[in-house]
Simulated assay, not measured.
Amino acid sequence: MPDRLMAAIREALTDAAGWEFDHPTDRTALEAALREAGIDQYVALPYAHKSGMAAELNDWLLKEAKSSRMCLPFATVHPADDVHAVVEAAFKNGARGLKFQCPVQEVAPDDPRLDPAYELCVEYDRPVLHHAGTAPMFGDSPHVGIERFRQFREQFPEVRACCAHMGTFEHEAFLDIARADENVYLDTSFAMATVVDRHVEFDPAVIDDGVFEELAGRIMYGSDFPNMPHAYEREFEGLIQRNLSETAFEALFRGAAEQFLGEV
């Protein structure tokens, strides 16, 4: 994200959770760190916390991505914007999908103001990623939770949708909806880090190896890099140590993401 916005996000996270951040935010340094960790490509996930900023933010990110061999840019929109216009412009300019940080943007997955965005996802064959779970500090938010996500799925079953952070703290319910809905995905970001219990009450061990085998192709590796208060390796080291089949490993670290992103 642009420097001022990234600094504001980090300041808000530090104030809310006491987290400190050592990872670089400059794109060149950020991508060098990811390459060192063995990453070929990454998805950039913007979000707009107020109306009137999404179009400019999308344009900035799409321009950055054009000069990068690694960056796969998503776009965002605020529910008070001209949702159809902002999203269509982003898709036409190369955005690979949409991101909604539901509690921060104060918009639930099933908010009818987002219907034009989902309709465009169907038209352009683009996926959407929601922070729809209650972790790490959103248990009282009316904009998250399994019921709001379930209502969205009932309205737009054809849209490929990922719930970030394994749906924590309602991971069991989100796993169940993924089992029943082939267009629902989950990502491992933060929730499966080996140090997650330092920051929130969650143990990655409650999701056993069988889940990754059963849902191979719809659970994908992810991280909150660079906005996470721990070393990057903590995100994947526990996953690598799991006793998974070659098929499940390939799906986790590549195949599921390719399927989620689709052909563009």
Rank of each mutant, 00 (worst) to 15 (best):
L34D: 03
A75F: 06
G145E: 11
K50N: 01
P2D: 13
A17W: 12
A132P: 00
Y124W: 12
E11I: 04
Q101V: 05
L120K: 12
N58C: 10
Y185V: 08
I39P: 11
R4M: 03
T25D: 13
D82H: 09
A85F: 05
F100E: 02
P127G: 11
E213D: 05
P157E: 10
Y221P: 04
D209C: 03
L261V: 08
A8V: 09
L57T: 09
A132C: 01
A164F: 00
E233M: 07
L13Q: 12
G238E: 05
A8L: 10
N93H: 15
V87N: 09
E235H: 03
V206L: 08
P73L: 13
E119A: 14
E201M: 08
Y124R: 07
R148P: 00
F249L: 14
V104A: 12
D3N: 04
F138S: 09
A191D: 04
F260V: 13
G139D: 06
D3P: 02
A164V: 00
L62H: 09
P116S: 11
T247F: 01
E20K: 15
A108N: 06
Q101G: 00
I39C: 11
R153N: 01
V195H: 06
P157K: 14
E123L: 03
E154L: 11
V200A: 02
D224E: 05
W60Q: 09
M192Q: 13
F21G: 04
H78Y: 08
A257K: 10
A135F: 11
D110V: 05
P112N: 10
I146W: 05
S67I: 06
S51P: 01
T28C: 01
G222M: 10
A205Y: 01
L5M: 13
R150S: 14
E237W: 07
H49F: 05
P73V: 15
P136A: 10
F249H: 14
V83P: 00
A80M: 07
W19F: 14
Y42F: 15
N93C: 01
E158R: 15
H131E: 10
P79E: 10
D187P: 04
D181V: 07
L175E: 01
F21D: 06
F174S: 08
E154Y: 03
G222R: 13
E56P: 00
I177H: 01
L114N: 04
E214M: 08
P116T: 15
V104Q: 14
G52N: 06
F249P: 00
E88V: 01
G210M: 09
F169K: 10
E123W: 00
E213I: 12
R10G: 04
I39F: 12
F149K: 10
F156P: 01
L175I: 15
A135T: 11
R4I: 07
L215K: 12
H23Y: 03
P103L: 10
Y232F: 15
D176S: 15
P157S: 09
L34C: 09
E154N: 13
E119Q: 15
R148K: 15
D22C: 00
A17G: 06
E170Y: 02
